[in-house]
């Protein structure tokens, strides 16, 4: 990213951090939701934008982490934050390891179909099973308590605290993903996206790298799912169904896959659109669908591409050398 982009991101984060002081409760909670999905979409972008693996089952890890919190929470009482968070992210990662071991052996559209089917398998497990509330799902009556060594750090029951915690998690993950992009691991994923065959000839065991990326993305999706379950106090099979997987993939594509901040932008636009159209009609999915179709037809690089069209890059080489560069 250029210095200007970093400055824009920093300004955006500062604005979001200050939000609880000038915005009303509804706006802050909306922003928290967008941030959680920005995190979720960024985790998917690690697969789609970087490794070129288009997953349509990513909600599985998001939803399962929420279920872990719900199942681990005592009835009517707050669960301990850190242990349940570790458990939720851990379960999501393990699940990603099991599913990933099967699906990273496939390629292209085949990968997309296989991930979709496995996501749906999880949906059926929670929908048809009676261990987690079946089709109604589960409720979380009290948000986890954020204590460390007996000291209460923050109170997630307060929407302002919750917002800051989500923002901090988001910022941390963003920094991590930025470092990852420039790391040897990130470069390997870039190479796999562009030319996996050559990567193997160069001596990279590509399947292993794809699997690690799949597990990392699953764990981060689990983090997002945990936060989402905290915010809404309810988990249901829809949270891991394929509509959710499709929605988050659309956020990634809408925002633009090439960039670090594209998925976050996509998440903001997605929920903004929903809010906007819901104000007009019960059938808000109709105009939303029309916008998506229009983007597919006319904005091949997503909204980030629109920005690039307004401000064309200096040279074809510019972006690539910037990416090489950090050098």
């Amino acid at each position: 990213m250029t210095r200007l982009q970093w400055a824009a991101v920093a300004a955006g984060l500062a604005l979001l951090a200050a939000m609880p002081w000038f915005a009303d409760k509804f706006a802050v909670q909306f922003a928290s939701k967008v941030l959680i999905f920005a995190l979720f979409a960024s985790s998917l972008n690690l697969l789609v934008g970087q490794a070129g693996l288009v997953s349509l089952g990513h909600a599985g890890f998001f939803g399962v982490a929420g279920y872990v919190l719900a199942l681990a929470s005592p009835e009517y009482d707050a669960a301990p934050l850190w242990s349940t968070l570790a458990m939720a992210v851990g379960v999501a990662a393990l699940l990603a390891l099991a599913i990933g071991a099967l699906v990273v052996r496939t390629r292209g559209v085949y990968f997309l179909m296989a991930t979709l089917a496995f996501g749906q398998m999880l949906f059926h497990l929670f929908h048809d099973g009676d261990f987690a509330g079946g089709s109604d799902g589960l409720q979380i009556f009290a948000r986890p308590a954020g204590t460390l060594f007996g000291v209460a750090l923050f109170d997630l029951e307060q929407y302002r605290h919750f917002h800051w915690v989500v923002l901090a998690a988001c910022a941390l993950v963003l920094v991590f993903l930025a470092r990852l992009r420039a790391s040897p691991f990130g470069r390997v994923l870039d190479g796999i996206r562009v030319n996996e065959h050559r990567m193997r000839a160069l001596g990279f065991a590509t399947v292993r790298y794809k699997l690690v990326a799949f597990v990392l993305a699953g764990a981060l999706a689990g983090l997002a799912g945990y936060l989402s379950a905290c915010q809404f106090g309810v988990v249901n099979p829809e949270s891991l169904g394929w509509h959710q997987s499709g929605a988050v993939l659309l956020m990634v594509i809408l925002g633009g896959m090439g960039s670090l901040t594209g998925p976050a932008l996509g998440a903001a636009v997605w929920w903004g659109m929903e809010l906007f159209f819901q104000g007009f009609t019960r059938h808000w999915q109709l105009p939303m669908g029309a916008v998506i179709v229009a983007v597919a037809l006319f904005l091949p690089d997503g909204l980030a591409g629109l920005w690039r069209r307004v401000r064309p890059p200096r040279a074809v080489a510019a972006e690539a050398s910037v990416r090489e560069g950090a050098a």
Binding site: V54, V109, Q285, A290, I292, A296
Partner: peptide
């Protein structure tokens, strides 16, 4: 294929609504 995914997902929303 990503654009096809985008387009046809949009079509699902339109058809369902």
């Amino acid at each position: 294929h990503l654009h096809q995914v985008l387009l046809t997902f949009g079509l699902i929303l339109i058809l369902e609504e």
